[in-house]
Simulated scan of single mutants.
Amino acid sequence: MTSDAAPLAAPEPDILRYAAFATDPGGGNPAGVVLDASGLSADRMLAIAAEVGYSETAFLIPDTSGDAGGAYTVRYFSPLAEVPFCGHATVASAVALADRNGPGRYVFATQAGEVPIEVDKGADGVLHATLTSVEPHVEEVGEADVAEALALLGWSADDLDAALPPRIGYAGARHLVLAAATRDRLARLEYDFDGLAAYMTARDLTTIQLVWRESEHLFHVRDPFPVGGVVEDPATGAAAAAFGAYLRERGAVTVPATLTLHQGEDLGRPGVLTVELREGDTRIRVSGTAVPIP
């Protein structure tokens, strides 16, 4: 006997919302988190990310083989496209897991490679997550490419800090690092959205990492993200890791070093990212808190 009944629709996933690199839901960078995305197609993930509307949503698929507790395959989607790695959504996801399972160690298998994350509870009772990047590298960038990027941003060569020359940093995704000579220059961000998106797409860039150095270990940063359909990312863990690799490669800090990056202040969503460079290990560690968004 046959049945004309329509097949049952797949259940809607539970979508969590966390603010990463902040202790206030109104700060940091919001991320969507789906802790069990088993059975979701890439098209459905992209549609969910677009519905959520944050710069990224992370989709976790638990590894059910053997004794692989704490292991997940993770995919990251902006409202417009999939990205290979996202730091703030990784921190948000790890804290979301720890909220349910307690502090511990997780391993995320991403398109960029394997990313371990440690979650612990600080003396303040707040959960802190530390991700260890994939192996980073830094690339030269041509003068013509720099000039085009500056024109699209509305910057001039005189707006740059000569001590921190432009480079492309990678620690899971590619970011063009441009250092502003003054805090005022960093604070004024108006750019050609479509033009910069096309420029970045042609060069496989995820964000532009705009930085201003306040002191040896303290930086202020901003990240235009037009390729993700977002004018600016409020707190960007992947770019922070790439920037740490850049500073190490340039010899701009003495290793070991712990750096503090303030981001989101100019958006009214302040967040703090901690970047650790260790001796004998070229991988970069990025730490921060995350809290649920009601």
Rank of each mutant, 00 (worst) to 15 (best):
L46H: 12
E232F: 09
L152W: 06
S3W: 08
T282P: 06
V33R: 09
S78P: 07
P62N: 06
L273Q: 12
D14H: 03
T73I: 02
F77E: 04
V138Y: 12
T201S: 09
A198W: 03
A242Q: 06
L16W: 07
P234Q: 03
Y106F: 15
A129W: 14
P11Y: 08
D43M: 04
P30F: 02
W212N: 04
Y54N: 04
I208W: 11
P166S: 13
I168N: 09
T289F: 08
N101F: 12
L218V: 14
G142Y: 06
T57I: 01
L189H: 08
V138I: 14
D120N: 05
G69S: 10
A96R: 02
D24I: 03
G228E: 03
V255N: 04
V230L: 13
G32S: 04
Q209S: 13
A239G: 15
R174S: 07
S156I: 01
G154W: 15
D192E: 13
L153V: 09
L176S: 08
G39H: 13
A42R: 07
L178P: 05
V126F: 07
V52M: 06
T64F: 07
P292R: 12
E139Q: 09
E140W: 00
P226K: 15
Y76C: 13
A242E: 04
G229M: 10
L196Q: 13
E12N: 01
F225D: 04
G104I: 01
Y170F: 15
K121Y: 00
